[in-house]
């Protein structure tokens, strides 16, 4: 009963660490979570835009607009990420059940996943710092390498913790 995964599901699978078999039950649960997340975003977008329109005459300056965008990112992106991650964890969709023979392979996959996570996270931090500070520097490269190692080890540790051996 394994279903063909859409591109959106593949993205969600990667970013929210959905490791188990995606069968009809898990797809149904993911759809429920995605619908709730969409409703949250839809309602928030409505309120945020109305608030901006109402306050645009009195308060709209360049700095308040930047703050508005910043708050929007945190509430919308952060809120959805937090909600989806929490639900995925509660539904145990991030648990990867494997047989004893397949355990080493699963650990290897967890290490590769951790490496990619570290690289993406590190690159994100590097470009963020470049945007803020501007110029090239050795300290920034070293900081990025540090972030990659921290991202790699923490993600690998979390992934391995979610592998369950089943007899």
């Amino acid at each position: 009963m394994k279903l063909n995964e859409s591109f959106l599901i593949k993205i969600m699978r990667y970013f929210f660490s959905i490791r188990g078999v995606l069968d009809e039950h898990s797809i149904r649960e993911i759809n429920k979570v995605a619908t709730n997340a969409f409703m949250y975003l839809w309602i928030y977008t409505g309120f945020a835009n109305v608030a901006l329109l109402m306050g645009s005459d009195k308060f709209l300056t360049h700095s308040t607009l930047i703050w508005f965008l910043f708050v929007n990112l945190i509430v919308a992106w952060g809120g959805v990420s937090f909600y989806v991650t929490r639900k995925v964890s509660k539904l145990k969709l991030n648990y990867h059940e494997v047989s004893v023979e397949e355990y080493p392979k699963a650990v290897h996959q967890a290490i590769i996943h951790g490496a990619w996570f570290g690289i993406i996270y590190g690159m994100f931090c590097y470009f963020l710092l470049t945007g803020v500070q501007g110029t090239f520097s050795l300290s920034r490269i070293l900081f990025t390498l540090f972030i990659i190692v921290v991202g790699w080890t923490s993600d690998t540790q979390r992934e391995i913790g979610h592998i369950v051996k089943v007899e």
Partner: peptide, 12 residues
Amino acid sequence: FALAEKVGVARQ
């Protein structure tokens, strides 16, 4: 787990 693998679903 064995039945789940045979029919292609999760053990849960």
